[in-house]
Design a protein around this nucleic acid. Structure first.
Lengths: 164, 164
DNA sequence: GCTATATACTTGAGATGTCAACAATTCTAG
DNA sequence: CTAGAATTGTTGACATCTCAAGTATATAGC
């Protein structure tokens, strides 16, 4: 009993997997907080909202199905519905229906949305680049990115690995 | 105008910093979702709750000030208050006041809390180790952990970098 | 000693996202 | 072509966390 606990505790302390995971959690929390509050203060955008604008801006015809956004942001379908609702109210995104599939609703970046994306991108992108390039040489950055890509969710745009 | 946009878009696409950041976001979302739902299903614990139990279990006398938990989990003070409230209701954590400083309330791991930590740790730790060791060789894991540690929040237990 | 400031924590109101259940449309097999 | 299954999306109820404001204690400067 007491022995079991000690052994377990020792394993926990020594586990390189747990250590990596804990650091990922902390880095995510700290970065998210810093970048989100800056983006919010300067442009009135949340991190996820900016990412939606970015993904729409890069998509062909600046439009994406909800399902595609679910896969790219790893939110649930209802999360995406509500996120897009906010962007629609702000006038940065509009709905469009699909002529060939009645279930689908596209999210389309409006002209105002594209302007917002550009405006916010200027400082937000700089903030991201500063945070990372201050700390890593280019090849370290490359290593970090490729290691992170091997974790779940790193499959890119496709590996949708249903959230839920 | 149009040119500016194209240049910006090109930069965005090419930015290794943004790429690393996006991958970190996706990896965090996917891992968090997987580990949290498993932990919730098997032990009725959220990720943050488990981490509090773990930190308390490793602390001297199994007790920590709220402020220390704020620094370790990177939540806000009110987030910690509410998280601990849930753990207190479950009987895994108790309050204790500090004899030398009347402002401080300690969070103390109870015996039931220690049992819960052990019970949950067995499968949760295995899940973490599986996810990481499946994908990385030991030295890659080491590299990943040390790169992540250089990001904000990686200063360890001290660099409290106030959340807010 | 006493005011001013800083620290530790809590609380009410609100933001963002999840889950479960549902509606609508499309695909698939007999 | 039609019944059953899968896919796409929305909605209500709820969980978790943040922000702003407030309380209580401690520390510093005069």
């Amino acid at each position: 009993m007491s022995l079991t606990r000690q052994v377990l505790t020792a394993q926990v302390s020594a586990s390189p997997e747990l250590s990596a995971w804990a650091r990922l959690l902390r880095a995510h929390a700290a970065l998210t907080r810093a970048l989100n509050s800056q983006l919010e203060a300067e442009h009135g955008l949340a991190l996820n909202e900016w990412e939606v604008l970015l993904r729409l801006g890069r998509a062909p015809e600046r439009r994406l199905k909800r399902v595609e956004l679910v896969g790219q942001l790893l939110l649930t379908p209802s999360g995406i519905t509500r996120l897009l609702e906010r962007l629609e109210v702000a006038g940065w995104v509009a709905k469009a229906s699909c002529p060939t599939d009645g279930r689908v609703t596209y999210a389309v970046l409006t002209e105002a949305g594209r302007a917002k994306l550009d405006e916010a991108g200027e400082t937000h992108l700089a903030a991201i680049q500063a945070l990372f390039s201050e700390r890593f040489a280019p090849e370290e950055l490359e290593t970090l990115a490729s290691l992170l890509a091997r974790l779940p969710g790193g499959a890119g745009e496709d590996g949708v690995c249903s959230p839920g």
